[in-house]
Every structure is written in structure tokens, then in C-alpha cells.
Design a protein around this nucleic acid. Sequence first.
DNA 1: CTGAGACCTCAACCCCACTCGAGCTTCCCC
DNA 2: GGGGAAGCTCGAGTGGGGTTGAGGTCTCAG
Lengths: 153, 153
Amino acid sequence: MARPAAHLTIGQLAERSGVATSALRFYESRGLIASERTAGNQRRYPQAALRRVAFVRSAQRVGLTLDEIVAALATLPEGRAPTKGDWSRLSRSWRPRIEEQIERLERLRDKLDSCIGCGCLSLRTCALNNPGDEAAARGPGAVYLEPGSGPAS
Amino acid sequence: MARPAAHLTIGQLAERSGVATSALRFYESRGLIASERTAGNQRRYPQAALRRVAFVRSAQRVGLTLDEIVAALATLPEGRAPTKGDWSRLSRSWRPRIEEQIERLERLRDKLDSCIGCGCLSLRTCALNNPGDEAAARGPGAVYLEPGSGPAS
DNA sequence: CTGAGACCTCAACCCCACTCGAGCTTCCCC
DNA sequence: GGGGAAGCTCGAGTGGGGTTGAGGTCTCAG
């Protein structure tokens, strides 16, 4: 608690969070994270930024857009540093969303058998094409689940 | 069988497939669907196009990019009209992919409890941030999972 | 035969989440 | 105090998947 929030440079934050500096600047421009500046105009981040960045990445994995994440972060208490409980509350709210995604995929998987197998594929009444939930599915658009490119091995 | 492939206008195809005419032209430019032209240069689609469009949309829901879908379609027999079996074969190949996505989401869901709850969120060793499966998660990039928010009923 | 509505092309634009590069400044270790 | 790495801003570019609009043509019911 006495620890006076050691400040990280953007490079350090990038290394520790695994997020490129360009992305961090981008996040800052979008209001996802904040920094202070040195006399020479360089960014300095508090340790807490690390957690914030981690939250952002996790939220993206759930499929939230940056705008949605900004909105979620806006519900954090202003004055004090967020507690584990705060973070936990936010991320718990993702659960239904994740489960919904899972259910959707399960339905899709099951329909692949029943629909494509049965030949109804071309009918607009087919649940596969015409997901039913589509109308309700307003939303952010792309869900980036592992943007890809991890050949890594 | 005698039915001589009634030709659909692009508007009819759009209406019956639920895909905008602009998207259909776009698909055609990408080689996903094909059309014949009238003397006046308007597109006319065979009934089979309906099934093809349906396939494309379904494939997108699974997370394939248009390029991947083109590649998949290229494995269809050239001379004859694809049979149910052909479509079925293609779509069956999506199953592992769908199941992988489901597993990923399940892991994410479970980690939300264990990781965010435990406060390790900010550590790069945390499985939530540092997905671990990232390498395995090669893929198309964006996975369009019903953009979200489906109260539906 | 006429005219409204559907269709044509092509280029430009949209969104999302970043990345890259140029040109310049600051930091900090030796 | 010198120099090289790291940081700065700003604008442009990327890729995926389309949409929009201008300007013109075709189709087909009446």
C-alpha cells in the first residue's frame, strides 16, 4: 500500500503485458488506459495499468468491442483503485455472453448434421442459414477470438 | 429433374437467401458464386446458387474467411451439380473447428472464475491473458459468432 | 410503347483494431 | 556530455467483409 505505484514506461508495459506499444498508444487514444507524462512528454504508467490492459485483452477475447470495453471500464469507481471485487464483477458479467456464444456454436454444430444432411440448406426457413437469433443479434460485428497467426510451432 | 433451373434475378436471390444484392455481387467478384447474364447484361442465377449462398453464410458462421470458402468450394466436383453428399462432406469438415472454438470458450469461461477471481489477472503468466492455446488457435482471424446480444426471446 | 423499378459498373467509403514510417525528442548509461 | 535506444506525434496503410452513390441501362406490366 505504501508502494508508490512504480511507473512503467510504455516499453515496459508492452513487454509485461504482451501488447505492442503501438496498441497501447492506440488504447490510450481510445480512452482504455491512461498515463501521466514526464517533463519530456513520455508516458509513464502506474502498475495498475497492467491489470487494466489485461482486462482489456480478456474482454476482447470474450468478443467485446473496444467501445464496449470503454463502457465497462467506465463503471469502475472513479476515486479509488479498483479492487479485485470490481474486476471480478465486470468479468462475471461476461459469463452469459460466453455461454451464449457456446450455445450458438453448439446449435450450429448440431444443425450441420441435421440441416445440411437433410438437404434443407437452401431454404430460408432452415435454422442454419436463418439463425433465428440473427435479428436479435445486433451488435458490434466481429468477434475476434484469437485473431490468428500463431504458428508458433 | 426436368425443371430447367429456373433462373433467379439478383433481387430474388437476395430476398430468398437473405443476403443483400451488394453482398451477392461482392461474392461473385470473389468467385464464391457464379451467374449467367441476360442479353441485357443482367445476372441470372440457377436455383443451385441458393444452396451455394447458404453454404457460404454457414461457413462464415463457422469462422471461415471468404478465401477459405473459395478453397472449400473449389473441391466440389466440376462437371456435375454437387449432391447432398458433397455439401455434407464439406460441412462435416467444420466440426473439429467448431468444437475447438467451443472448447476455447469453455476454457475462457472457466478461467474467468479462477484467474480474475484470484487476482492474477495482471500477470503475463496468467492463462487468461496469455492464452497458451493461442498457438493452436491458428485460424481465419475473425470469427463471426452472431455479433452478440441475442435476447431473442 | 412507355415508364417505374430493378439492374448494371466502378470507385469510394465504412468499421474495427491495429501497425508502420517519417521525422524529431528524450532518457540514461558510460 | 555524448550517443544510441527508446519515446513522441501524426498520417497513412492493412485486411476482412462488405455498403453506398453516381450515372446509366434493362425489363416487363399495363
